[in-house]
Design a protein around this nucleic acid. Structure first.
Lengths: 219, 219
DNA sequence: CGATCTTAAATTGCACACAATCTCGGCTGG
DNA sequence: CCAGCCGAGATTGTGTGCAATTTAAGATCG
């Protein structure tokens, strides 16, 4: 059997990202242990790790809850992304091989296909593709300090989890950005690539802030 | 009695920061449990949290080790600090009250006193003062996303732990930067404050990179 | 009738025991 | 003599029981 705690971390992360628990929901240790088929010990470890990732918040003697975000916190996260991700993108440009560019191209094109209006549209398929695209770019930058800083606070999970809140124009822009970044990458132009990434994040920020605000007004 | 795991995290962090273990040293769970007077469970949790902070690295089934840094990684951390800390400093300026400025002033002046050559010199006393100074500035910025991003990767601990490697000129510059930042803060000038912070970090980078390179040549 | 104290159920924190895995010595065979 | 194998000791991973703390309901008093 593979490591129980590792499996627990992965499964719990997916559950939260897919919205299986409402924001702020209590995460009881025994409940999760039963649901994942392990004992409380690996569950505890999983919660600790997800807490470090920012997906859950744990209060002493009071258990763990799914992290909930205020609009201000969400804006702050996007501000951080707007600072770091363009830099990482610029670093990635000179390091990318043709094969890297091809792979990113493939991802960008697939996203355009499944994201465009029509019969083949599948907004849920965008999520893993998008994560992969940004992840590859960050890996190419080969700057662990910035990468972990970004991962540590972005907790982009909440941010990356859902494309249904995009209006048509914003989504079209977002997909076009990916394609344009690949073009900038192939052209070997870090400034261009970074600028597109900056626009990309600002576009996403507006969408997510609007969606979050609306969701909280409904509640 | 206060929470054992919390105490374990704090004590272990201090031990590592004070250099009680050489970089790369193995951290056995039982050994730490005895040393801290708790069982392995809270030790395990402490190691997990310090791993998230980047102070230790833990390999599956192979235990935890004190994180060791290459020069390239150290440079990367300073690059990150050079991006984020000036921004946080700029954010802090308009939020600071007179009382905040007074407190920072007090810290900066104390650092000058204990850092200047003479009978009262105590380089070890600089460490907590310096941490406090930077910590207050970051807290004033009130930007949790950036703060956690910084904390998550900087683990500057290693960086902040020791002033003995500073040569006289660099140390004098460093102490003067603190004083100048307070002046910029009182003047309400975010650009000035951010610029000084940028210089401050670049100054530190040169010192730490030199020291690290030398330490690794000796070994 | 509302507020506070009390008490019991539920939940987390910790310790300990056992199972799984790794490390490293010596040993065998080429 | 060296490479590869093997097994004992040590170390980490996981399960479970008990103590401590929190929470919530109910009772008592103002």
């Amino acid at each position: 059997m593979t490591r129980a705690s590792e499996r627990a971390v992965g499964e719990l992360r997916e559950l939260i990202l897919h919205g299986a628990f409402p924001a702020g929901a209590r995460l009881g240790e025994v409940e999760l242990a039963e649901r994942l088929g392990v004992s409380r010990t690996p569950v505890r470890e999983a919660l600790a790790r997800l807490s470090a990732e920012g997906l859950v918040e744990i209060a002493p003697n009071r258990g763990a809850r799914v992290t909930s975000w205020t609009v201000a916190e969400l804006e702050a996260v996007f501000e951080l992304r707007a600072v770091l991700e363009p830099r990482l993108t610029a670093l990635a440009v000179p390091r990318a091989t043709t094969a890297d560019a091809d792979a990113l191209d493939e991802l960008a094109e697939r996203m355009v296909r499944v994201g465009s209006p029509g019969p083949g549209r599948d907004l849920d398929a965008l999520v893993p593709l998008n994560r992969d695209f940004h992840g590859r770019l960050i890996a190419l930058a080969d700057h662990p300090a910035m990468a972990t800083a970004l991962a540590g606070a972005v907790h982009a999970p909440i941010v990356l989890r859902n494309f249904h809140t995009y209006d048509d124009a914003s989504l079209r822009r977002s997909l076009a950005h990916h394609v344009e970044m690949v073009a900038a990458l192939r052209a070997g132009d870090p400034t261009w690539a970074a600028a597109v990434m900056t626009a990309h994040i600002h576009n996403a920020r507006v969408v997510m802030v609007r969606a979050t605000r609306q969701a909280q007004e409904d509640a």
